[in-house]
Amino acid sequence: MSRPPTVAQRRLIEAADPVTGRLRGTRAQLEALVRRGLAFRHPRPPHDHFLTPAGHRVREAEPQAPPVAGEAETDGGGGFAARVGGEERAPVSAAARLREVHSAWQGLLELRRMTNPDGATGRPCGWERTHLVRAAALALEAAGHRPAGPDGDGYRVRATPQPEAVAVYGPDEPFLRACAQTLERAGWQAGAYTEPRTRVRYLLASPRRA
């Protein structure tokens, strides 16, 4: 586990914008936060610095737990994990989670801008095509859909045998329709299907290529 931030670094973190996590400080201060994985430098001018999900957690003053397998798939180092539905919930406040998801989604849009050949943000990028379940779950959670808890009342995103496709399950047809609309706005294709044996309805979603 890394050492806690210094008093000066914590002060800088606490002064960040409460929603976007935008930071103000000297170049040396900001670079120190970047080296510790608590901030990132936006690649486009004016190259502002923003808190990573890990930085947001420091501001919430919640104990840091060692990252578990698969949790760093979204942002590459902040310990953020998109909720695919059915997993144990971490003890984090709703406000903190909202900020984490917002930061992760904005980071993903920037990744699209940087890696899609035409700079398009409305179409999934290569990372999403290799992390289908996490990418689809992030798109749903960022739009305000609730992941399934122990009672199963929410979305569940699961891998499928089909290449570049995930299955999305929900409690009812209206919920699935809303999820389909969200995924389509996020650059995915989504269609409703019925499992032959169980008659359970679900969405089959895949990232759009054009």
Rank of each mutant, 00 (worst) to 15 (best):
R99G: 05
R113F: 04
V92T: 05
A90W: 09
A139C: 08
L138Q: 00
C125I: 03
V133M: 01
A142T: 01
G126R: 15
L111W: 13
N116S: 03
G144Y: 10
E141C: 06
E110C: 05
R129H: 05
R99C: 13
G107C: 05
R99A: 15
A94H: 08
D118F: 12
A143E: 14
P124R: 15
A135G: 06
T130F: 03
A90L: 14
A95T: 04
W127I: 05
G122C: 03
E128H: 09
C125Y: 13
G119S: 07
A95N: 03
A135Y: 02
L98I: 01
G85Y: 08
R129P: 00
A136G: 04
A94M: 04
H102I: 03
G144S: 11
R113V: 01
P91E: 11
V133T: 14
R134Y: 08
G119K: 07
L109R: 15
C125H: 15
G144W: 04
L109W: 07
L108N: 08
A139D: 07
E141K: 03
A139H: 04
G86E: 04
M114K: 11
A95R: 15
H102A: 11
R99I: 01
H145M: 12
H102E: 13
A120T: 05
G126A: 12
L108H: 14
G126L: 07
R99E: 04
Q106F: 05
R129T: 09
L111F: 10
L108I: 09
P91N: 12
G126Q: 14
L132H: 12
T121R: 15
H145L: 12
E100L: 07
A90T: 09
L98T: 13
H131F: 04
A136P: 01
A94R: 15
T121H: 08
P124E: 11
P91R: 13
H145N: 06
S103E: 12
L109D: 11
L138M: 01
G119Y: 14
W105I: 03
E141W: 02
H102F: 13
G122I: 01
C125K: 06
W127G: 03
L111P: 02
R134I: 00
G86C: 09
R113G: 04
R113M: 02
Q106P: 00
G107N: 03
H131V: 00
V101R: 12
A137V: 02
